[in-house]
Simulated assay, not measured.
Amino acid sequence: MTAQISLDRLTGLIAFARAASLGNYTSAARSLGVSPSAISKSVQRLEAQLGLRLFARTTRSLTLTSEGRELHEKTLRLLRQAEEIEQTATAARSEPSGTLRITAPLPIGVHILSPAIPKFRALYPKLSIDLRLADQHIDLIEEGIDVAVRVGELADSRLISRRLGWHRIAAFASSDYLSRRGIPLHPDDLPRHDCLTFRYQSSGQLLRWPFKVGTKIIEIVPEHAVVADASDAVAAMAVAGGGICMSPTYVAATFVKAGLLTPVLAEFAVDLFPITALWPESRRSNPNVKAIVAFLQEVFPMPAPWDVVMVNG
């Protein structure tokens, strides 16, 4: 007789695997699009069915028991095999369809991807888009992500990558601020100005402002008047005349075109990191992934329009 797994138990395994990977029910629920209580109940039913305690629970997190660790490894193998089955079926289709899951840093998602997605959907109306924006990197394979757009040099043997462009950051200020406080001509002038700086949400570290001085690239952490952990907030404060900010050009470009921000120290700006598209090896032949990767290369042209504003204003 062939053993059969019930749908209820399979649901419990999925909930358990996601909760174990992410460390809590809330994150697992968010990634699966259900409520935390649904995740908790599924895991509790699974424990009752198996007669095992899978988690040592605290008020803040979940810790796997020894039995839970062993089951987690086996469950991940099972889910990866299910993923391969799904990808084989998807690759058999010639036309992109279904749900395409994309993740990207918040500012790239807001300023570059979101305005482009309607055009992409017009090309592929059978596709629905699940766009997830966060500064924290997530595991593409465990989260079921099709394509990630990320900043920086990234190495993961399970992923395929393609360079899209450059993450260029530069200094900006409003004309009102510059008329009151003067225009800095060299990075050494920054201590005499109000600086608006950015703090990374993932690490809590302050952004080091990079400048190319002669043949060298220097990085400084200026004394700041205000610090914020969102690029758009920093740019908005600069627009309001609060001081000089260091911002990605794709965030500042709209304000520069509208005359609300002016590039400063532009001759010292540097291309800091590459912007890269990544996708799991298992999705190499996926028509959805092929379509979005080709489209992303159009979305990130060279030169990028948001960098051109540094020259043309």
Rank of each mutant, 00 (worst) to 15 (best):
Tyr25Pro: 01
Thr99Phe: 10
Ser94Lys: 05
Ile145Arg: 13
Arg180Ser: 00
Leu133Met: 15
Arg163Tyr: 11
Arg53Met: 05
Gln44Ala: 14
Pro187His: 09
Val234Phe: 12
Pro303Ala: 00
Leu22Phe: 08
Gly152Glu: 09
Ser282Gly: 06
Leu62Gly: 09
Thr254Pro: 00
Ala28Gly: 15
Ala134Arg: 12
Ser66Asp: 15
Thr254Leu: 11
Gly241Leu: 03
Val270Cys: 05
His137Asp: 13
Leu296Met: 08
Pro191Lys: 14
Pro287Ala: 07
Pro222Cys: 02
Ala91Gly: 10
Thr58Lys: 06
Glu83Tyr: 09
His186Lys: 06
Asn288Met: 12
Pro301Phe: 01
Ala155Ile: 15
Met246Val: 14
Ser31Ile: 12
Tyr200Met: 02
Phe55Leu: 10
Pro115Asn: 07
Leu296Phe: 04
Ser285Asp: 14
Asn288Ile: 10
Arg77Glu: 13
Ile85Phe: 02
Ser94Met: 05
Gly144Glu: 07
Trp279Pro: 07
Arg162Asn: 11
Gly144Ser: 10
Val270Asn: 04
Ala28Val: 09
Ser94Ala: 10
Ile220Asp: 00
Gln49Trp: 03
Leu190Thr: 10
Ser203Asn: 10
Gly152Gln: 10
Leu64Arg: 03
Leu131Arg: 04
Glu83Trp: 02
Ser94Gln: 11
Ile217Gln: 07
Gly313Thr: 07
Ser179Trp: 02
Met302Trp: 11
Glu223Tyr: 04
Leu100Ile: 12
Ile292Ser: 00
Leu106Trp: 11
Leu113Gln: 03
Ala173Phe: 08
Ser6Val: 03
Ile244Val: 13
Arg77Gly: 01
Arg121Gly: 02
Ala291Met: 08
Arg80Tyr: 14
Ser97Thr: 12
Ile183Val: 06
Ala148Ser: 15
Lys290Gln: 08
Leu76Trp: 05
Ser37Glu: 12
Ser179Phe: 01
Met302Ser: 13
Arg80Ser: 06
Asp156Gly: 08
Thr63Asn: 14
Gln81Ile: 13
Glu86Ser: 09
Ala134Lys: 03
Glu267Gly: 00
Arg30Phe: 00
Val149Ile: 15
Phe295Cys: 05
Ala171Trp: 06
Pro301Glu: 04
Ala92Cys: 10
Pro105Asn: 14
Trp279Tyr: 15
Met310Asp: 04
Asp232Leu: 06
His186Glu: 09
Tyr250Lys: 13
Leu296Ile: 09
Glu73Asn: 05
Gln205Glu: 15
Tyr25Ala: 15
Leu296Lys: 11
Arg53Gln: 14
Gly204Thr: 00
Ile108Phe: 04
Pro301Gly: 05
Lys290Cys: 00
Gln201Thr: 08
Lys290Asn: 02
Leu296Asp: 07
Ile169Phe: 02
Val34Tyr: 07
Pro222Lys: 11
Val34Glu: 04
Gly144Arg: 11
Gly51Trp: 02
Gln81Phe: 13
Glu219Thr: 06
Ala253Ser: 12
Ile141Lys: 05
